[in-house]
Design a protein around this nucleic acid. Structure first.
Length: 563
RNA sequence: UGGGGCAUGGUGCAACGGCAGCACACCGGACUUUGAAUCCGUGGAUCUAGGUUCGAAUCCUGGUGCCCCAGCCA
């Protein structure tokens, strides 16, 4: 990523530039990434992570990691660990600044007491249903709670007893006293604390009252000295409340800035929907390679570099938008093209016999790992023999026009080996071609003919005798529709699941060098795509590869349009 | 029908009163021991109606469309 791209202008940077000009934060830039530990991070979070860490980096500032753990019934340390692991993998470092909203429970409590003392908060005994009823609607103002004008002393006493555990869940809340007639529903005496006799993953049973997001978030930002509190668009309506708490409390006041969350075609991004896919076994788990979770993408073979580049190239704005999956795929290929060693692998094998090649002869070709890069010096040996496998798709008995691959009577180049000409096909009882016989030209060793004759097609191959076997998993989009939520009456997004999103190929034939494949490394199976070892299901002697992404296939495209 | 936001090629993002640009996608061509990559090239956009201005994507007014808000979730 070059300098220009890294500093692509956006409206948030402009706001920061303005703050720096006016001196509002004394030139400081301090952001935070505030995940709730109730699920796995997905590509949408990656946009936020890259934004927050990226901006701070560029402005010489810092970014805190803060777990927004104010709801004990949904949160778990399992998620904390996976979130930390994923952010680290993405390439960002929060140093010692790993914080938890739960670290501030006491501070939050004391400030709530201050608000009560100012007459700006009160304990309310309304039931959940009543609270909803009193809130009014979008078009009608709400009504004031009958408990709104309790004395400061009574509020203080009640709030202390809420903390002490004297009341059951849901029986009382602490509410900010703002304006029940506000057109912004968030300002209609929002709840600050609710009673929850639940064990918290960090504070255990110390607390039985827990602060709500709106109250906890702004104060947490404030105590950490955050300058720019970047969040998504749906919190725009909450900003007046963010400001209200901090103003009333007279605390240091960060600036909240909202941007549009990322949406991608052919997938869903909501945690709830992803959870549903996992729980109802439409996928194998949060890290299923078809999932838009970062754990899934990592397992699929996405690199952190590609994801960071993607986050950069999609830009930041306030416009609700849906980014084409093709853009993600493009930056992925772009990255993998540079880092993936080239290998040969035959996914759907067809046996080839070279009739004029000595039966007992074996050769080895030394082939570079990066044939396209003249600087690169690494290579591997590839065995060759009389019997080979080629891709089933690379042979047609009666080829269509412009078909450059092997056909009866035609000549192609076996990559890095020899020219071969097909002389005969063998079929089974159903008429399926099960074997192809060819002759090779010994004068074309290495794949070049001395007489200068050209062959249009070059295909990959693997020695039948020396091939290693593997399982290969091919993935397609999880959904068949660009917008999975576009459904017929009575259907839901599950009806748009792609039945072919996973294809498992067993008995794939790979060149021997792939036995040394390493988890976490990418390989280009030439003419097939980019692959990586599956980090979960691979066993000693039992290789499982995931196809990260196919190569661009202009032949398939031609076929598609001419059909 | 209250409030808050957003409208620029098919998609995403720029242009901050002065020639509407970039990327992806699409289409054509060159090259090719990956039908990949690379290289070259074509086409295509300012939601709408007024107004201000020498000049408007940009400023003003009125429409229209879309998104968000009525959790003791975040």
């Amino acid at each position: 990523m070059n300098e220009q791209e890294a500093n692509r202008s956006n409206f948030i940077r402009e706001i920061i530039d303005e703050h720096n000009r006016s001196g509002r934060f004394g030139g400081r830039v301090h952001t935070r990434f505030p995940p709730e530990p109730n699920g796995y991070l997905h590509i949408g979070h990656a946009k936020s992570i890259c934004l927050n860490f990226g901006i701070a980096q560029d402005y010489g500032g810092l970014t805190n990691l803060r777990f927004d753990d104010t709801n004990p019934v949904k949160e778990d340390t399992e998620y904390v660990e996976s979130i930390k692991d994923t952010i680290r993998w993405l390439g960002f470092d929060w140093g010692e600044r790993e914080y938890y909203a739960s670290d501030y429970f006491e501070v939050l409590y004391q400030n709530a007491v201050r608000l009560i003392e100012k007459g700006k908060a009160y304990v309310c005994d309304l039931t959940p249903d009543e609270v909803r009823e009193y809130r009014g609607t979008l078009t009608e103002p709400g009504r004031e709670s009958p408990y709104r004008n309790r004395s400061v002393e009574e509020n203080l006493d009640l709030f202390r007893r809420m903390r002490a555990g004297e009341f059951p869940d849901g029986s009382r809340t602490l509410r900010a006293k703002i304006d029940m007639a506000s057109p912004n529903l968030n300002l209609r005496d929002p709840i600050m604390y609710r009673i929850l006799h639940a064990e918290h993953h960090r504070t255990g049973n110390k607390w039985c009252i827990y602060p709500m997001y709106d109250y906890a978030h702004c104060v947490s930002d404030s105590v950490e000295g955050i300058t720019h509190s970047i969040c998504t668009l749906e919190f725009e309506d909450h900003r007046p409340l963010y400001d209200w708490f901090l103003d009333e409390l007279e605390l240091y006041h960060p600036q909240q800035i909202e941007f549009a969350r990322l949406n991608l075609t052919y997938t869903v991004m909501s945690k709830r929907k992803l959870l549903q896919l996992v729980q109802q076994n439409y996928v194998s788990g949060w890290d299923d390679p078809r999932m838009p979770t970062l754990a899934g993408m990592r397992r699929r073979g996405y690199t952190p570099e590609a994801i960071r580049k993607f986050a950069d190239v999609v830009g930041v704005a306030k416009n609700n938008s849906v980014v084409d999956m093709e853009l993600l795929e493009h930056v992925l290929r772009d990255d993998l093209n540079l880092r993936a060693k080239r290998r040969m692998a035959v996914l759907k094998p067809l046996k080839v016999v070279l009739d004029n090649y000595p039966a007992d002869q074996v050769e080895e070709f030394e082939v570079p790992d990066f044939p396209q890069d003249p600087q690169s010096t690494t290579s591997r040996k590839i065995p060759f023999g009389r019997e080979l496998y080629i891709e089933r798709e690379d042979f047609m008995e009666v080829p269509p026009p412009k078909y450059f691959r092997l056909a009866l009577g035609s000549e192609v180049r076996l990559m890095n080996a020899y020219y071969i000409t097909c002389t005969k096909v063998v079929k089974d009882a159903d008429g399926q071609v099960i074997e192809v016989h060819c002759t090779y030209d010994p004068e074309t060793r290495g794949g070049m003919s001395a007489d200068g004759r050209k062959v249009k097609g070059t295909i990959h191959w693997v020695s039948a005798q020396r091939a290693i076997e593997a399982e290969v998993r091919l993935y397609e989009n999880l959904f068949t529709k660009k917008d999975p939520y576009e459904v017929e009456e009575g259907q839901d997004f599950l009806d748009n699941l792609n039945p072919r999103s996973l294809e498992v190929l067993t008995s794939c034939k790979l060149e021997p060098a792939l036995a040394q494949a390493v988890i976490g490394e990418s390989y280009q199976f030439m003419r097939n795509g980019y692959f990586c070892l599956d980090s979960v299901d691979t066993r000693e002697g039992q290789l499982v590869f995931n196809r990260t992404i196919s190569l661009v296939d202009s032949w398939a495209k031609m076929q598609g349009t001419s059909a």
